[in-house]
């Protein structure tokens, strides 16, 4: 009994710690402007309102920022999956000289700080005309997305019984055929989970987005949202509405893949 009390007590504390900021974000976005600044604060809105959401789409460029982010993140995620899955399969299964060293390099690449790459990338992209370009930004995101996909999918491929591929080879498939017919269908959950993480990292990224894109029309969510803090006279209701909407896609995606979370986080999946 005492034990149960302790557990529920601890779980309640944990819930407050984890969920209160989320709750506060959502609830603030639903309060009218005057109520947001009130002290003492109201724990539930006295008057529920969607005015901030309306404002967000009518008076700010949030909609465009959101779509820009979506475009960049989807592009980089699909490119990273295509490139990374092939490489991961080779690392997991095929005979390549020096692949251990290559695998280690991949992990190292995954750890590369953005601050280390941003200066040369900016100089390089200027030369190539890739600044102020969604393609350019999504290419920059490949610097962490490809190593991430390779690192996680390599482990995932390694966990699929090799017998299946061998059976396919004997049944008459080529190596590529075995990958396509037998391995990839097994890997679908892992691919989805990995893709969602790659998307999340891109969705979060701030530095590259800030430096590589200066054109207002092309700006993505993270730098765009940070500008609300100064440009809108700190309208917290509006900002919290934007924060809530930016969180929504990730919440949905994570709900879908909860079962496979460990796959995405596991092994090297530790990008902050």
């Amino acid at each position: 009994m005492l034990r149960a009390l302790r557990i529920y007590g601890a779980a309640a504390l944990l819930l407050i710690f984890v969920a209160f900021p989320l709750y506060w974000m959502a609830i603030t976005s639903l309060k009218p402007q005057t109520e947001v600044f009130r002290v003492p604060p109201t724990w539930l809105p006295e008057r529920w309102t969607l005015e901030h959401y309306v404002e967000l789409f009518l008076l700010t460029d949030f909609g465009r920022l959101f779509l820009n982010s979506l475009q960049v993140c989807l592009m980089s995620t699909f490119m990273a999956l295509a490139v990374g899955i092939l490489g991961a399969y080779a690392l997991a299964r095929l005979k390549v000289r020096g692949k251990e060293a290559y695998g280690r390099m991949v992990l190292l690449a995954y750890m590369f700080p953005g601050a280390l790459l941003i200066i040369p990338l900016l100089l390089l992209f200027r030369q190539l005309g890739l600044t102020n370009s969604h393609l350019g930004l999504s290419l920059a995101y490949l610097t962490f997305a490809v190593p991430f996909v390779m690192w996680v999918m390599r482990d995932f491929f390694a966990s699929i019984p090799i017998d299946l591929e061998e059976a396919a080879l004997i049944d008459g498939a080529s190596r590529l055929g075995a990958l396509w017919d037998v391995v990839l269908p097994q890997a679908v959950p892992g691919i989805i989970a990995t893709g969602i993480f790659a998307f999340l990292f891109a969705w979060n990224e701030y530095l590259f987005a800030l430096i590589l894109i200066s054109d207002e029309a092309l700006r993505t969510l993270p730098p765009g949202m940070m500008r609300f803090v100064s440009t809108t006279d700190t309208n917290w209701g509006l900002i919290m509405a934007a924060s809530t909407l930016a969180t929504l896609p990730m919440a949905l995606a994570f709900g879908l893949i909860q079962r496979y979370l460990v796959t995405g986080l596991g092994a090297g999946g530790v990008k902050g």
Partner: peptide, 10 residues
């Protein structure tokens, strides 16, 4: 043709 210990059915 080969039969595997794990059967290796797809």
């Amino acid at each position: 043709a080969m039969v595997f210990q794990s059967y290796a059915l797809y």
